[in-house]
Nucleic acid binder design. Structure first.
Length: 457
RNA sequence: GAGGUUGUAGCUCAGUUGGUUAGAGCGUCGGAUUGUGGUUCCGAAGGUCGCGGGUUCGAGACCCGUCUUCCUCCCCA
């Protein structure tokens, strides 16, 4: 009885070449994280439900994968809640663990739990998969990797500065030709709500403004009206819709707009520090843009908000991040400011694939394959393989004395760099025919000089 | 969670108003070719037409359900 092979929606298998390319992305990110002084930690793939639930806004809980209780624990099912159609309570009685939804909330839990074992400001990076019960779409998976770097325990703005450079460094290293780091500040958004006389509608206003480039001015106004924002407040917000110019111009305009809001001005000051200092230090390839419409749904950001978009491709944001002043407060540790960013490795992979930006090396596996001509020849090949492996050259012998054509085809399919041929003649003369599989060139190399061949050129 | 869309060979897809034994290209395997892969030629294998039910003398095609694909919304990496 055979079963049709399939994997759950929103998940993927990875072929060797795909793993090689993903590793290239992870290695590039990891290297930069280390250079910037972050140290790796890991947390479990699943947490207690209570750690995650209620941390991602009203809609968030819906997207968290729950792990069903097993064995005797099944009996804890709250049938009364089911009868009353209280589905959330019923779900909670069925499940006490859940797959992590992101790396930030587990990190906050980690910091509080291990506060006596770590030094503040604590800088950590973490590269692990996360899971979301989202509907899969282009660039949207149910299992994907996040590559996070966060600092907790300092409200210094030099970390915001570091993160802007980190985005720039990693994406430049990955040869991404054009990308924009968008930056905003939650305090500026608060200021807007305050100045408009609708401070209580902060979230609705930011969510609506965030959609400006998608649904246009009319759409935003409509959404604000639907959310119960007053007409006078909307009139005050309207000037922001036509907000253009250089970062310096925008800052000036906002400084005027927010003049009466203390928190708004604080946001302007924070943002201008980051923009000015970044201009001072310079960026390799990134554009840094103050984007007033950048809000992001996560309700725990309190200061800087980041988002990175690759230009010229149809793909949502490839990186995100921001400052959260009291994330650890949820776990009972007050007054710990944190700021962090996340690289969406899977989306970066899709962008690099679309733009054909992966280096050629990532498609090479084996460096050298020895063709098998028979027992005597094989014996010599095995000795040579041993020597080459000691010299870190990846190589192997074809397992049987098959037709040469078949062995060559195998080498071709494996995308090996070189094929070594040692037949009767070569055995007698102590040489190897070395064939470069991409150029087709073939040269004769003495057996005792094989280890010194420049394999990686 | 809401709306739309898709599903036929390993992959990409044909398949007429419902009518005999469901096709092609690519890929795979074998051969032409017993020391040379990517090109060429010949041959072969490979399908419960997503799954379940219904209509019909007859369903790959029509209807219902379900799962899946891709897209829009919500939200996000």
């Amino acid at each position: 009885m055979s079963q049709k092979p399939a994997i759950p929606k929103g998940t993927r298998d990875f072929l060797p070449v795909e793993v090689a390319r993903r590793t290239y992305i992870f290695d590039t990110i990891r290297k930069a994280f280390k250079t910037y002084g972050f140290e790796p930690i890991e947390t479990p793939s699943f947490e207690l439900s209570g750690t995650l639930l209620g941390k991602y806004g009203e809609e968030g809980d819906r997207l968290i994968f729950r792990i069903l209780n097993s064995g005797e624990k099944m009996k804890k099912a709250d049938m009364e809640a089911l009868a009353q159609e209280n589905l959330p309570r019923f779900a909670n009685s069925l499940s006490e663990k859940a797959l992590r939804y992101d790396l930030t909330v587990p990190f906050a839990r980690f910091v509080v739990q291990h506060q006596n074992d770590i030094a503040f400001p604590f800088k950590r990076y973490q590269i692990q998969p996360v899971w979301r019960a989202d509907r899969p779409q282009h660039g949207r998976y149910q299992e994907f990797f996040q590559c996070d770097a966060d600092v907790v325990g300092s409200d210094s703005l030099i970390y915001e500065l570091d993160f802007v450079q980190l985005f720039d460094e990693v994406l430049t290293d990955l040869k991404l030709p054009s990308f924009t780091i968008k930056i905003n500040n939650r305090k500026i958004l608060s200021g807007i709500a305050e100045v408009s006389g609708a401070a209580d509608k902060l979230v609705d206003i930011t969510v609506a403004i965030d959609k400006l480039d998608k649904i246009g001015e009319e759409g935003v106004v409509k959404e604000l009206e639907e959310k119960g924002v007053t007409a006078t407040a909307i009139e005050r917000i309207k000037p922001l819709f036509t907000f253009t110019g250089s970062n310096a111009n925008k800052l000036e305009m906002m400084r005027t707009f927010l003049a009466s809001s203390e928190i708004g001005i604080k946001g302007i000051e924070e943002l201008s520090f980051v923009l000015d200092q970044t201009a001072e230090i310079g960026l390799k390839r990134a554009e840094l843009e103050f984007d007033i419409t950048l809000a992001r749904g996560l309700n725990y950001y309190t200061g800087a908000i980041f988002e990175v978009k690759a230009n010229g491709v149809k793909m949502g944001s490839i990186c995100g991040g921001g400052r959260y002043d009291d994330l650890t407060g949820l776990f009972g540790m007050k007054g710990m400011s944190g700021v962090g960013i996340s690289f969406g490795a899977d989306r970066i992979y899709d962008v690099l694939t679309e733009l054909e930006l992966f280096p050629e090396e990532t498609s090479k596996g084996l460096t050298l394959l020895f063709v098998n001509f028979g027992d005597k020849e094989q014996a010599l090949c095995l000795k040579l393989v041993r020597q080459l492996r000691n010299a870190n050259v990846s190589c192997e012998v074809y397992p049987t004395n098959s037709k040469l054509q078949k062995q060559m085809k195998y080498a071709n399919d494996r995308n090996v760099k070189y094929v070594a041929l040692i037949g009767e003649n070569e055995l007698q003369n102590g040489v190897v025919q070395l064939k470069n599989m991409s150029s087709g060139e073939q040269l004769s190399v003495a057996v005792d000089q094989l280890v010194d061949f420049e394999w990686n050129v």
